[in-house]
Amino acid sequence: MLTLEDVSIVAGTFHLTANCSVPEHSLTAVIGPSGAGKSTLLSAIAGFQDIAAGQIFWNKTPISGLPPGKRPVSTIFQDGNLFPHLTAFQNVGLGISPALKLSAQDENRVAEVLGRVGLTGMEARKPGALSGGQQSRVALARVLVQNRPVVLLDEPFSALGPAMKAEMLDLTKALLTATEATVLMVTHDPEDARRIAEHTMVVSDGQVAPPEPTRTLFANPTDALRAYIGP
């Protein structure tokens, strides 16, 4: 279980506090107004943002002292998820070995996962030769081979058109559910949360509200959520 215990993030005049646990083996949406600190929260969990106080635990083990690559966490960023000088295959391979030393078994696994995201035959292409949707698929494939228990999605498909985004959300949900990962997804679109998130947590006014079942939350929105969604 991923637990944020009295976590406090300070950056200049910005302040964010969180004290909650994220439900295991499920997908939790993080929504709230822009500038509220959704991405900052994910950065702190991933290790890119220092926390001023408190502690982040994964299954009772504190992880906030670890460098990003050593945390039980994999991330899909808003953009820049792929190295443009490496092929799709290599980009996914980095998820298994940062030195790209892949055994025959590893290579099979990369090929198999690329197949699962529907990119068979495109292994040798570099990101420049892939469409936006295909690039997202490569990033998703890497998260799958990384096989970390926590997956963070920071508005991962916001650059895609509506139909493509819906397709990618469903694919992501299906593939990550199969791995039993604990997933946190930042989005500014409440529809995304309703579409695939079992739970939702609202970030606003420097506070992270504990996650609640998405359906319940949207049926009886809190003041913060109502202010965000609008009339």
Binding site: A46, G47, F48, P67, P68, G69, K70, V73, S74, T75, F77, G80, N81, L82, F83, L94, G95, P98
Partner: peptide
């Protein structure tokens, strides 16, 4: 690309 490299433990 620094964040991406960090998250993949490229050092």
């Amino acid at each position: 690309f620094g964040r991406l490299a960090d998250s993949l433990a490229l050092t």
